[in-house]
Amino acid sequence: MSFYEVIEKYKDFDFDSYFEDVTDNDVLRSMAKDKLNHEDVLNLLSPRARKHLEAMAQKASKLAIQYCGKTTCLYTPIYIANYCENHCVYCGYNCHSGIKRKKLNLEEVRKERDCVADKGFKHIIVLTGESEIKSSIEYIGDAVEILSEKFPSIGIEVYPMEVEGYKHLVSKGADSLTVYQETYDEEVYKKVHIKGPKANYRFRLDAPERGAKAGMRSLSIGALLGLSDFRRDSFFSILHGEYLKTKYPHIELAYSAPRMRPFKGSFHDIVDVDDATEFQILTVMRLFDPHAALNVSSRETLDMRKHLMPLGITKLSAGVSTDVGGHSQGEHDTAQFKTNDDNSIEEVANMLKSIGYQHVFKDWERF
Rank of each mutant, 00 (worst) to 15 (best):
G69P: 09
V144K: 14
D12W: 09
F13W: 06
V192W: 03
S135W: 08
V360G: 03
H359R: 14
T322P: 00
E242V: 15
E365I: 05
D272P: 12
V296Y: 04
R261S: 06
T301R: 15
V163P: 08
P152A: 11
E186D: 07
N43C: 14
Y79Q: 00
P290Y: 15
T283K: 14
A214N: 04
Q329W: 01
L45G: 05
E145L: 13
G222R: 07
T72H: 08
L36T: 10
E187S: 13
P77G: 12
K100H: 15
G196F: 03
C68T: 11
Q66W: 10
M216L: 00
Y166W: 04
L36A: 14
V192F: 05
Y184H: 10
I124R: 03
C73H: 08
E331D: 08
S321V: 02
W364S: 03
E145M: 10
V163E: 14
A32F: 12
D229E: 04
K195G: 02
P310W: 13
P197C: 04
F13M: 02
K103L: 10
R366N: 02
E138P: 05
C84A: 01
A57M: 13
F3I: 01
V6G: 01
F288G: 07
S46Q: 13
D229K: 03
K111P: 03
L282A: 12
R259C: 12
C115A: 12
E5D: 09
Y139N: 03
E145Y: 10
K245I: 15
F288A: 13
E20T: 00
Q66H: 14
A143Q: 02
Y184C: 06
G98Q: 07
A49T: 13
I194V: 15
Y357S: 00
I313G: 01
Y83K: 07
K167H: 01
R259Q: 13
S30E: 14
L302A: 04
N343D: 01
S135L: 08
V324K: 01
V273S: 08
M161D: 06
I80K: 05
F151R: 04
L42D: 04
V284R: 08
R286S: 00
D26E: 13
V284I: 06
S136L: 11
Q336T: 00
R202W: 09
K172Q: 06
S17L: 11
E209A: 12
Y79F: 00
P262A: 11
S135M: 11
G211M: 00
Y4I: 10
E187L: 09
T322Q: 05
F19K: 02
L106D: 10
E346C: 00
V41H: 11
C91N: 07
Y189L: 05
S298W: 02
